[in-house]
Design a protein around this nucleic acid. Structure first.
Lengths: 125, 125
DNA sequence: CAAGTGTTATAGTACAGATATAACACTAAT
DNA sequence: ATTAGTGTTATATCTGTACTATAACACTTG
């Protein structure tokens, strides 16, 4: 369900966060569905409880999950605002990339062609 | 010429690298043009010489600049391979973004529309 | 009550980034 | 030759972040 890549330079708790965010946004995790307990995930991934806790706490702050004492952590109900926020985040990243394209003189047409290509690559999986 | 943003989470030496890369790729710095000496840049930015040195050393390794003992650091002559490489890097980033778009169910059409919008925003500057 | 859950707190380790300082080597101008 | 400006190398230190280790406390469910 959740995987850590030690070759990845991102820190463990960030990887856990991203992993769960993606699962929630893609629909792999449904609202009010329980996610692994801090202890079980820590044990599965062979990491410390506090590392998982940190990821979960930030996910809670960002509205992706909610935690209930003695019961566990659950996916938030309101996906809509989350989706909106993630689209905004996405747009910001795209904006940066467009700016970068500018530096190396990539035109809009070239940009779109690359995107089309990458999209179709994706579907060939 | 070069600016450090302490609010940016990127480390100082990375910011220096990116700054200079952009200047070179955009043509703001011409081949064989001298860039600020390690000492002067360190003094201007109120940072340590070693931090600048680290950025310059990596830029040299990546082929963007070359250094001459006693004279200074200069922009590399061969921009072509650099441009190619930067386009490749760019494509990789775009690929990641496309993957991310997938998670939040952004279609190719939506993606292209956003890109068009951001490109035109850019021109309105 | 016991087992499983989240929570809080503290201390310790490891590493990366940045600093401080110094010494050495080369180049160009005087 | 001297001086000022350049890059280079080396070492030690400080700081913050990530992660670990451990423990204790609080809540929920069977």
């Amino acid at each position: 369900m959740i995987q850590i890549d030690y070759a990845n330079s991102e820190s463990i708790y960030i990887q856990i966060k991203e992993n769960i965010k993606k699962l929630i946004l893609s629909g792999g995790l449904k609202p009010d569905e329980m996610i692994p307990s801090v202890r079980s995930l820590a044990s599965t991934l062979a990491i410390n409880v506090n590392t998982v806790l940190r990821a979960y706490k930030e996910l809670e702050l960002e509205g992706y999950i909610y935690s209930v004492q003695g019961k566990g952590n659950f996916v938030s109900g309101n996906n809509n605002s989350l989706k909106e926020k993630s689209v905004e985040d996405f747009k910001e990243k795209l904006g940066k990339l467009v700016k970068e394209a500018d530096y190396i003189n990539i035109t809009l047409e070239e940009f779109i062609n690359m995107a089309k290509e990458l999209y179709s690559d994706k579907e060939e999986r």
